[in-house]
């Protein structure tokens, strides 16, 4: 099953590679991994999207907790949560594509953030599946380039991951 794991870790050199190394050494999947500093500059927050059986997920959480730099770990799937990912897609904007891309962008509530002679760059946020759906919906041959940030997640309401 797909799980979104959030963690807070010391904002120190090498902390990211400890997490990435743990996943590769123990053969766990990483669908996406994002990390950035929090409002507290000594802490980084990481969101890892992974898949695995319940036993594997339990081990992943335990192994992450074991890393000395990791302060807190939360499996967002244990409760209600929100997931967002940002995607930038550069698409062809010539001929029929010019209107088509504008329309698809509107349907998916994206924004065109760069217009060039032959292309648009579309910004789109949403859950991973929404971004997947956009890619599915438009003509594949019109896509020039995509870049995705990977998912960020946060618990709903009072579910707060904080030190």
């Amino acid at each position: 099953m797909r799980h979104i794991i959030s963690l807070l870790m010391e904002n120190e050199a090498g902390a990211l590679s400890r997490v990435a190394g743990l996943f590769s050494a123990r053969g766990y999947n990483i669908e996406s991994l994002t990390v950035a500093v929090t409002e507290d500059p000594t802490l980084s927050r990481m969101t890892i999207v992974t898949t695995g059986s319940d036993d594997v997920i339990e081990q992943i959480i335990k192994q992450l907790n074991k890393l000395i730099d990791v302060v807190k770990v939360l499996d967002l799937n244990d409760g209600k949560h929100i997931e967002r990912e940002l995607m930038l897609v550069k698409v062809k904007a010539t001929g029929v594509y010019k209107d088509e891309m504008k329309r698809m962008c509107d349907i998916f509530r994206g924004r065109i953030i760069d217009v060039a002679d032959n292309s648009y760059t579309i910004e789109l946020t949403g859950s991973c599946s929404k971004l997947d759906a956009f890619i599915e919906a438009i003509d594949r041959s019109a896509i020039l380039e995509t870049v995705r940030t990977g998912a960020s997640g946060i618990g709903r309401g009072d579910r707060i991951l904080k030190v």
Binding site: G14, A25, I68
Partner: peptide, 14 residues
């Protein structure tokens, strides 16, 4: 050294 030993230490420091 920190990179090489990362998978076989409890922790390491530079």
């Amino acid at each position: 050294m920190v990179g090489i030993t990362r998978p076989c230490v409890k922790h390491n420091f530079l």
